[in-house]
Design a protein around this nucleic acid. Structure first.
Lengths: 163, 163
DNA sequence: TCCAAAAATGCAACTCTGTTGCACGGTGTT
DNA sequence: AACACCGTGCAACAGAGTTGCATTTTTGGA
């Protein structure tokens, strides 16, 4: 997937909302392949959302997305994210703010088998939620008869950009 | 605080909602002292809510509380919990269900200074959230320039009663 | 003891997030 | 071309959390 981000540096045409870019034909083709690989039919909307997620290195909320795609409907974006989560393209993050965030899965992420086990960081200043994929959640030893299935660990504080 | 729980075994008079008990005069006096120790003025409502929390060994939501105190208003219970959190009587738990839960602080809990650092467990079957005060969150090593202030760790799975 | 101030309570209303139902429209298939 | 299917957009709704305001209760001082 890193290759695609590099492709993202190709010539862009600004259109619609200031935050929305349509990349080159090559980029679009690459994003299409990502969708098809995960068995998601590549519609225009989905390509734009996927591209948007690629440009962000922080987790975004449904409302963030809504504000970036003024033309589109909240429901459509909601269902697009839902589709992406179910197809293991993005993972849903509970960062303790009460608002779900979404971020692209890593290439080796195996959502269907195990939940993502990395740490998330929420900055109390800039309010952004950041995935720390290299920081795995340490093993937790539970009392007898407690059977763990998922683990969520969120650290709150000041991020690298705000400190 | 353990002493107070023992006092809770004293003779009780059932009144109002099935889940609400008024304990003995001695128990009420003890609960009053708990409130006063944390600089919260002991009203009837607060005593009942505090007693309710003592009877529960799981974290409760505002709606749980509302359903147990049919006579009272959601807003009052909301503000009661808020007061309790601010006074370091209870801590607020984000268990990832999207609904805040509340549980009594431990005796040695120092909410003002540091957030509670124990693990929470949410059972996917009985939907209850349990504090595991003896299971502290292991140290998390963050990338440079990330300054941690709070940590939240929730394990989901099957609890000891459901397994 | 009584009164005034302060605090707590109860009611109504509202915001925001998440969600569902339904109708419309485009796309692909036979 | 007809059809089914899927995605999209609109409307509406549920639930949690929250706030404003009027009323009641409690507290503290005269």
């Amino acid at each position: 997937m890193a290759a695609i981000i590099v492709l993202g540096n190709s010539k862009r045409i600004r259109l619609g909302s200031p935050n929305v870019f349509i990349g080159s034909f090559v980029l679009m083709k690459a994003l299409e392949k990502v969708l098809e690989r995960n068995k998601v039919r590549p519609t225009a909307m989905r390509l734009l959302v996927l591209q948007y997620l690629f440009t962000k290195n922080v987790a975004v909320s449904l409302t963030d997305l809504e504000n970036s795609f003024e033309k589109s409907d909240r429901t459509t974006l909601y269902r697009t994210l839902k589709t992406f989560v179910e197809s293991c393209l993005v993972h849903k993050i509970d960062d303790g703010t009460g608002v779900s965030k979404y971020a692209l899965c890593e290439e080796n992420c195996n959502c269907e088998i195990e939940t993502d086990l990395h740490v998330h960081f929420h900055c109390n200043l800039c309010k952004q939620t950041i995935c720390l994929p290299k920081h795995k959640i340490p093993a937790i030893y539970l009392p007898k008869a407690f059977l763990p299935q998922e683990v969520n660990l969120v650290v709150k504080g000041t991020c690298n950009k705000c400190s």
